[in-house]
Amino acid sequence: MELDDLYRRVIMDHYKNPRNRGSFEGDAVTVNLNNPSCGDRITLQLKVEDGVVQDARFQGEGCSISLSSASMMTDAVKGKRMEDALRMAENFSCMMRGQDVDFDYDDLEALSGVNKFPARIKCATLAWNAMRKGLEQKPDVKE
């Protein structure tokens, strides 16, 4: 199996079987973002305690890249310190600019080819931008 086929399968698996889809009852950092150029919409919720992302959930509509990225991102940041989650968001942005980065969540590499399609980069980064916005509005973020 070629690497492109494997990446396509990982993306479609997250799209058809999204991880962490849903919402929380009660307190959670909630961010709503959309990508007007293609219609992607996401509501991201984060449970943050003592500077750690305890849990993450999302709801939304969009293309396979947008929703797969949201699934991967929510899975990847759970249990991470806020600073580490923000660093992951920066690394993801670097990957979208074509730079080589390493993640401790291997599925994210499946989105590395998106940088070849500039119109789709906003799809892939939507959930990450929502996470960044949510964590930056928390008062205990340390840069």
Rank of each mutant, 00 (worst) to 15 (best):
M1E: 07
E2C: 01
D4Q: 13
D5F: 02
D5H: 06
D5P: 00
L6T: 03
Y7F: 12
V10F: 10
D13H: 05
Y15S: 01
K16H: 13
N17L: 01
N20M: 01
S23A: 14
E25D: 15
D27M: 02
V29E: 10
V31W: 00
N32I: 06
N32T: 08
N34W: 04
N35M: 08
P36R: 11
S37E: 13
S37M: 13
C38I: 06
D40S: 06
L44M: 15
Q45C: 09
K47T: 02
V48T: 08
E49G: 03
G51S: 11
V52Y: 04
Q54S: 12
D55V: 03
D55M: 02
D55F: 01
A56H: 06
R57T: 11
R57N: 09
E61Q: 12
E61V: 10
G62A: 13
C63L: 05
C63E: 11
S64V: 04
S64R: 09
I65V: 14
L67E: 08
S68P: 07
S68A: 15
S68L: 04
A70H: 01
A70P: 02
S71F: 03
M72E: 06
M72Y: 07
M73Q: 05
T74Y: 00
T74W: 00
A76D: 05
A76N: 04
V77C: 03
K78E: 11
G79P: 07
R81C: 01
M82W: 03
A85C: 12
A85I: 12
R87P: 00
M88I: 10
A89P: 02
A89F: 03
E90W: 00
E90A: 14
S93T: 07
S93I: 00
M95V: 04
R97Y: 00
Q99C: 03
V101E: 13
D104G: 12
Y105K: 00
L108Y: 08
S112D: 14
S112R: 15
G113L: 11
V114Y: 10
V114H: 08
V114K: 08
N115A: 06
P118N: 09
I121L: 09
C123H: 08
C123S: 13
C123Q: 07
T125E: 14
A127R: 07
W128P: 06
A130T: 08
A130R: 00
R132T: 15
K133V: 13
E136G: 03
Q137I: 07
K138S: 12
K138H: 13
V141A: 10
V141S: 04
V141I: 14
K142A: 14
E143W: 13
